[in-house]
Design a protein around this nucleic acid. Structure first.
Lengths: 243, 243
DNA sequence: TAAGTTATGCTCAAGTCGAGTTTTTCTCAT
DNA sequence: ATGAGAAAAACTCGACTTGAGCATAACTTA
């Protein structure tokens, strides 16, 4: 019976209803100390007028390429960290037809451009807590993306993708604080970051001035060559683990 | 320009070349102390005669449902841990047409059935080190699945999905050893497993007899209610981290 | 009954973590 | 200019966690 099915499936693909594959992108950045996601406003039905994650149909290109192209079209960004998140394909998630969406997660350094072309589509960076009521199942996709982003900060040096080429330990700590939504002990964070091999490397320079509200000139660092943090930087307050 | 493209994409999906979506499953189990993956032999072109991961076209069903159905068709398994792995969609990965494959990772307890129906398709559990030269890009998918499985053992109680309902700490340790490919310190493993909240819970029973080659009757445990291990069970020998 | 194997627990030194403190260098407002 | 407040960086200390070994007792097979 399995063979019959396979046979049919292999040789009569046209017998199946038409399907489409899109990529949708959860692009995150930090603006004004807040975690923001890139959203577009839909001009067409379905969900006309609703905000949605940027994305579009996959052409004759690789999936990663499609995601990069879409993101570039909306933001002009080209050198971003992009990784596949998950694929969503429930029947009915798009009222037009069966649409499978391969979601991607992107980490953008501090605002490459405030707004997209400022023209048409109205792409905008929206604080994640205000990004609700999105089109399709994009609320779910965004939630999954945030979960993944928060988890990845723990064991990868991904936070450096949110920072510029050079950054201070405090700036890095602020990134963690904003993404995780909780303050971190400055001293311990400092010790930890410097002790994890390959996380950051010193530039030998210091910032030209201290913080906004005082303090000495901090040293500058750039991202190291580690792909994984070991030991990991664990999120505080996870004692009573997810059961 | 972006709008034009979106407009076209939204309203003329039929203008795009036909695409298909399949699920492919990396189903892992442990047989005779070896990590094995479920493979089928392809009867049809392309790659006729080559071994491949089990899978098939997605019907009018959810992706998770399609994966479960395919796995069930091959093994009869119904209560397995199944999770989405990654989606593969390079143009040309299937010579017939544009095929996107949503790969799933499954963890099966010790051999539900030695072989599939033993009839047709010739589904078989193959030691992973012998599972090479697979059809399509299945070598890559398998490698990604193994990476994911090994990583997940560290911070989730997934290893219990490889064990039966009741198991001994030593059996659990063997699962880790087989999947990771390295022996673990018995005493430390024992201490660690019992100290992580929710990992395992005692049944109060002990096995009816000791090990094959001697030793006291071990206590029996069942899986606990934790979804994440905290602190994690780190793989040894990862000092010089992935750079 | 002897020899070998295993489950389980204990010890100890090294390492890590969270929390708090100290010193010093800045910025800002007076 | 000067004092108050803030932040960078470094240090301390006690509580845990880890890796490596050792110890003991309970079993199996020969």
């Amino acid at each position: 019976m399995v063979n019959e099915r396979e046979f049919l499936a292999d040789y009569q693909p046209a017998a199946y209803p038409a399907v489409a594959v899109t990529v949708d992108i959860v692009a995150l950045t930090i603006r004004d100390g807040r975690l923001c996601v890139l959203l577009v406003e839909r001009a067409e039905h379905p969900y006309a007028g609703r905000r949605a994650l940027p994305g579009g149909f996959v052409r004759e290109e690789a999936l990663d390429g499609a995601a990069l192209r879409e993101l570039n079209e909306e933001t002009g960004l080209t050198r971003v960290h992009l990784e596949q998140l998950k694929t969503y394909g429930d029947p009915g998630r798009d009222p037009r037809m069966r649409v499978f969406s391969v979601a991607y997660l992107a980490f953008a350094p501090l605002l490459p451009e405030p707004e997209a072309g400022s023209d048409a589509s109205g792409a905008a960076w929206v604080p994640v807590e205000q990004a609700t009521g999105l089109a399709f199942d994009h609320d779910t996709i965004l939630a999954d993306g945030l979960d993944r982003a928060r988890a990845k900060l723990e064991y990868t040096p991904l936070a450096t993708a949110f920072a510029g080429d050079e950054f201070t330990i405090s700036e890095l700590r602020q990134i963690y604080a904003v993404v995780w939504g909780e303050e971190l002990h400055a001293g311990n964070f400092h010790r930890k970051v410097l002790s994890v091999p390959g996380f950051v490397e010193s530039t030998g320079q210091t910032a030209t001035r201290g913080g906004e509200r005082g303090g000495p000139k901090p040293k500058l660092y750039r991202a190291g060559d580690a792909k994984l943090l070991h030991p990991a930087l664990l999120r505080p307050g996870r004692e009573e683990d997810v059961r």
